[in-house]
Amino acid sequence: MQLEYFLLVAAALFCIGVYGLVTSRNVIRVLMSIELMLNAVNLNLMAFSNYLDPVGVKGQVFAVFVISIAAAEAAVGLAIVLSIYRNRDTVDMEQFNLLKW
C-alpha cells in the first residue's frame, strides 16, 4: 500500500465535490458537495498521519477537529437554507439573488 493511492482517491473525491458544488442547482445538494470536499480533506489528513507521522498521529487530531466543524457547518447551513426557503419559496440556486448587485 502506498501513500499515493490514498492521495489520488482523495483528489478525485475533492474534484467530484467541486463539480457538484458549482453545477448543482438544489441548495441541499450544494451542502452535500461541501461534505464530500471536507471528507476528501479528511482522507488526506489521515493518510499523512499514517504514513508520515505514524507515532505522533497529529493528522488524526486535525481530522477530529474537521469533523466537528463540519457538523457545525451542516447545522448552520441547513438552518440558513430553511430560512431562505421560507422567504423565497424555492430551493433553486439560480433564483437566490439576494447578494447579487
Binding site: 441541499i28 461534505e35 471528507n39 466537528s68 463540519a70 447545522a75 437554507v81
Partner: peptide, 18 residues
C-alpha cells in the same frame, strides 16, 4: 457516529422540510 448518524440524518430532515 457524526457523519452517518448526525449529518446525513440532518440532511435527510432538510430534504423533507424543503
Amino acid at each position: 457516529l457524526v457523519y452517518v448518524g448526525a449529518v446525513n440524518v440532518l440532511i435527510l430532515f432538510g430534504i423533507m422540510l424543503v
